[in-house]
Design a protein around this nucleic acid. Sequence first.
DNA 1: ATGGTAGCACCGCTA
Length: 261
Amino acid sequence: MRIATWNVNSIRSRIDRVEAWLARSQVDVLAIQESKAKDEQFPYDRFRALGYQVAHHGVSQWNGVAIASRVGLDDVQVGFDGAPGWGEPATAEARAIGATCGGIRMWSLYVPNGRALEDPHMAYKLSWLDRLRDQATGWAADGTPVALCGDWNIAPTDDDVWSMEYYADKSHVSPGERAAFHAFLDAGFVDVVRPHTPGPGVYTYWDYQRLAFQKRRGMRIDFVLGSPSLAARVAGAVIDREERKGTGASDHAPVVVQLDA
DNA sequence: ATGGTAGCACCGCTA
């Protein structure tokens, strides 16, 4: 079985590329982030035509998460208990959806950006991650294979950014964010991609600006964190940077994990 | 050459 995660940066503008990528990548389950669509705008039919069931959660033009599966899709959960909201008044954003696909408890996660170190969005990001870790620990407690897939908006080590000088005073690399990410590892989750895609200089995201992709100026911020029983089944992983090329690409590359059996 | 992109919805916001 093959699972993947991809921040598509608008499903409506990217659907042709997503369709073509599914056809050639042959993934069984795809966690999608940043659909930038409400449920009624999501192109369900395009996925169905390829043999995938889809669960999508989108409430505005921002955020939006989905799971597409051709190995079953059951027990869909929108959001997670205790997830903090944003705005005034604080309301839950469309940043998490879970479903059981082929025996794997899949989660598509779009972690809040943080924006800047002193921005209120940073506290929201850290709180959101703390609550997620608390919940995810419970999901995996009985040995269920859990895959926390998504855009984490954190570069956990210096090797995960093209320049620490550039990011020194910016979000994504701060000690607080890295601690929030590391807390998942402490809870038993494993970055199942890194052993198969060693760095430095290996990224999943490149800004659209300043020819970042061509200059190899990226960040590794998209991850599949597996519970121990999932991690034990990982046979390989790739970051499909070919998909970042050409006109009409998302600014994120898909990340694919091959599982035994 | 000291700026550059992209997407959505609206003329700014988010990334």
